[in-house]
Write a protein that binds this DNA or RNA. Sequence first.
DNA 1: ATCTTACATTGACGACCATCGATGTGACGG
DNA 2: CCGTCACATCGATGGTCGTCAATGTAAGAT
Lengths: 109, 109
Amino acid sequence: MVVEAPAECCSLAATPIGAADAECLAKRLKALSDPTRLRVLSHVAAQGCEAVCACDLIEVLDISQPTVSHHLKKLVEAGLLTREQRGRWAHYTVVREAFTELHQFLDLR
Amino acid sequence: MVVEAPAECCSLAATPIGAADAECLAKRLKALSDPTRLRVLSHVAAQGCEAVCACDLIEVLDISQPTVSHHLKKLVEAGLLTREQRGRWAHYTVVREAFTELHQFLDLR
DNA sequence: ATCTTACATTGACGACCATCGATGTGACGG
DNA sequence: CCGTCACATCGATGGTCGTCAATGTAAGAT
């Protein structure tokens, strides 16, 4: 599942958004609306340009491995993270453009 | 239900956020993660400083009145809108500070 | 006082979601 | 080839959510 960008990189303050754009933005925001996912994302983002492997997250967040895997998948599907396989490890990096779009949308004028 | 501000107005890119801040931010973002609610919010925001009454939203969005009322309540509870009663009408306005906080949080450096 | 209008609340229903244990998979080491 | 490690997937469970019809409520109009 891939989330396409809204028709125009709209702002909340501009003319009311259409149903299609709302649907697409809601998917991105839904991926952000879980506390565990925010913490996962925060750990990856705090690493800057360095990719983070999943095993680190299991230790730090103290939740089960399937749950971490589940959340990482959701974040990748929402286009907020990218996944890169290196041997047996999976490394994750933040997609900056996705946040730029959200950032613009949340900007009231 | 009121959403308190996170301990420090943190950014995703700073040091990993704690569980409490994540919980609080997730509540705000959850209120934004529904397409109907985004459209409601967008209609109010597009009105600028003018307050918007609920009856307008029912017409424009073509959803039932209880559903509009439900979403408006969620948005107020999340601190994203304020409600003001004027006679029989309820008027809603955007809380700009709430969006400023989210805006800062989504800013990667 | 009665009726209407604008909106909130309730209750119910179906859909979705976060979590975890169990299990599968593919890469690497010996 | 076999065991281990890192991770994905599956299935089940308990909880949450969006939606609407029905009903309640409070303010203004007649």
